[in-house]
Design a protein around this nucleic acid. Structure first.
Lengths: 192, 192
DNA sequence: ACTCTAACGGAGGCACCCCTCCGGTTCAAC
DNA sequence: GTTGAACCGGAGGGGTGCCTCCGTTAGAGT
């Protein structure tokens, strides 16, 4: 949005320890945390995460002094992937590109309900994630607007929250989720 | 939906104790629980609820043996109010009646995020709540469909989840929430 | 091979929550 | 007014989570 976008996961990579065993533990912790956050939401037990990683609780705290620090690290590269997806989609027709990216975005939200909370939180890296996301998806939306495909009386933030809200909801099955999302996106599309 | 609708709060009223002090505590507990659930979601601390009600934890457990029992009782009359609103709105134009009711529904979702979870849970009274809600709102939607105002390729369950999802999301302000909701509902409306 | 420093793991103190149980209290019926 | 049944409050035992601290271990540089 305002900030230039760059791979937020680089910030995390910089914190990866140099020693071999330490690096291994660092990775195991991230993997375990990713699992745990997906299963139990953002307030998963830290002790459980250490257990899953086969690591002492002390090691967890040494690498990630706060729950938030761990949380941020976990999602940095998911956000990167999302940004990457925006690039891959850029050469399609405006509306098609936008919806393709939003589908991808929605796909994340289903399992990673925690990402959603991150969209609001205030912090160095989480802010960078949000900025990256806006920088990646925003232009897709604006292009659709300029092509006259998306309604002009809303902004990208509106759209993102709409999609986030819908995809975070529990549906009876994936079909229902897709159906509802498509209907809502119909409301975003310009009438002709 | 399938079950006939009747005031679910009557089920709760039947469990209110007869003795004066007991009845007072029962009411205080419900009020405290309503507050706590609104603030902290469905997993608010039971001990905190008892504290707020100025009552021992034992009293809470005597009246509501499980967290779920308390939870159900709290929301029964909110659901009743929602059903009542459907009646009040029934004499307006089909589309206008539907959106008016959905606005009311959305209003609940903002604060009472717990109601949303109730929409899925399985249990005697929670099931009755869901049925009541469908019985109240469903006809409004079908009327709009028959009037050619709402698209025919979706059902009331789709609509409810869409609105629930959007309103449960955190927005920067109420205006944004209303704006996004209106856009999504535009997708529900038949094109002309 | 040796060292010494960075990293390890988990015990332990604290806080919170759940739920049961029981001695004391209060209502209401007679 | 008396009385007994219904109701009360909260102490207490068990569980889980958070975070710190420190004796032990193992990698990296020489």
């Amino acid at each position: 949005m305002t900030t230039p976008s760059f791979p937020v996961s680089a910030i995390v990579a910089a914190q990866r320890p140099h020693r071999k065993d330490a690096a291994r533990n660092f990775d195991a912790l991230l993997a375990a945390a990713r699992e745990a956050f997906a299963e139990n939401g953002a307030d998963a037990s830290l002790e459980d995460i250490a257990r899953r990683a086969g690591v002492g609780i002390g090691t967890l705290y040494r690498n990630f002094p706060t729950r938030r620090a761990l949380f941020e690290s976990v999602y940095a590269d998911e956000v990167d992937a999302l940004c990457q997806a925006a690039v891959e989609v850029a050469d399609r027709e405006p509306w098609e590109a936008l919806t393709a990216w939003l589908d991808r975005f929605a796909g994340y939200m289903v399992t990673k309900r925690a990402v959603r909370e991150a969209l609001e939180g205030e912090s160095e890296i989480l802010g960078a994630c949000r900025d990256s996301m806006y920088a990646a998806g925003g232009p897709l939306f604006e292009r659709a607007q300029q092509a006259g495909e998306a309604r002009p009386d809303m902004d990208f933030g509106d759209l993102l929250r709409m999609v986030a809200g819908i995809s975070a909801t529990q549906f009876s099955d994936d079909e229902q989720r897709d159906r509802v999302l498509a209907i809502a996106l119909d409301g975003v599309r310009t009438r002709r």
